[in-house]
């Protein structure tokens, strides 16, 4: 039996206790899409490992036409660190983009499509809090996905290829200890640069009731940006593309470490993500929730 409190709220109700990060985490954890996405993060390194086992290493095309960084592919089996690095390298372009768009783009749009969003708002979970918790948990799952991918790749790669110095193909071998730090830095930078996707997907998620629309829209725009970035004729304009610095993490593999591009990439990613998130907040706080 509820009694009146000073704030007029039901007994026991505190706005800052509604929809805690923990409860949202559990809501999302039980979802099949969460489990599948994380499962795939475990599966991918295994698939790559199997592919390397079956693939013959005799195909010697010398990396022609693949650019200087093809070296990363060539040294993928040099050790656990290299295998993990390779796994990140191949997944950074698309897989991680999709996974992050999924976690961040689906989170609000799916609640809207189920109709459960209005019940959360009627609890009431303050809208800003709802977004904050949703975003925190979505980013948490993004981080978990990346860590899972990295840890699995590192574990599998080390078991199969051993614990050896990191070979980047760009510079001298990096001792295993420092190599691990570099690998973590690369993962960190990747995560940071993918905040653009996270921001965009989250914004779209507040704008649409169709989860697929939010996820697909974010991935689509990311791809368009990547394509535009290939057009060198755009010159300096490309510096403003959200994906322009997406591969700056490769600079973290050289000796000495090149952080210039990574710093710019971090600025770009944070700025874009902040803009998208602010837009999401502004929009959602004023929105009429009709679904």
């Amino acid at each position: 039996m509820s009694t009146l409190t000073l704030q007029g709220a039901a007994e026991g109700y505190k706005a800052h206790r509604t929809l805690t990060v923990g409860s949202e985490w559990r809501r999302q954890w039980r979802r099949r899409r969460t489990q599948l996405a994380l499962g795939f993060m475990v599966l991918l390194p295994l698939i790559l490992l199997v592919a390397f086992e079956f693939g013959s290493d005799s195909s010697d095309d010398g990396g022609g036409g693949r650019g200087q960084f093809s070296a990363l592919v060539d040294v993928a089996t040099a050790g656990g660190l290299n295998f993990a690095l390779f796994t990140l390298f191949v997944s950074s372009g698309f897989l991680l983009v999709v996974v992050i768009a999924l976690f961040c783009g689906d989170t609000i749009a799916s609640e809207a499509s189920w109709g459960s969003l209005r019940y959360l708002l009627a609890i009431p979970v303050p809208r800003a809090r709802l977004l904050g918790v949703k975003l925190t948990v979505a980013l948490g799952y993004c981080a978990l996905a990346m860590v899972t991918l990295l840890a699995t790749a590192l574990a599998v790669g080390t078991l199969r290829y051993g614990w050896h110095p990191l070979r980047s193909g760009l510079a001298a071998d990096i001792p295993a200890g420092e190599g691990l730090v570099r690998l973590l830095a690369v993962t960190g930078y990747l995560g940071l640069s993918l905040l653009v996707v996270a921001g965009l997907a989250f914004l779209l998620s507040t704008l649409t009731d169709a989860p697929l629309g939010a996820v697909g829209g974010a991935v689509l725009l990311y791809i368009v940006s990547s394509i535009l970035n290939q057009i060198t004729a755009l010159g300096g304009l490309r510096n403003f593309l959200p994906t322009h610095y997406s591969q700056a993490y490769l600079g973290l593999l050289t000796t000495p470490v090149q952080v210039d591009d990574a710093v710019k990439g971090a600025i770009s990613a944070l700025a874009y993500a902040a803009i998208f998130w602010i837009a999401a907040w502004v929009r959602f706080l004023r929105k009429d929730v009709t679904s």
Binding site: A10, R31, L117, A122, I123, P124
Partner: peptide
Amino acid sequence: FGHKLAPGAPVLSRIGALVEGPGFLPH
């Protein structure tokens, strides 16, 4: 209960609602 309603007002916690059909997490 005398509180002016605004989106997210705490007094909403004293209301239980079914609006526009059920909304549940299907999984």
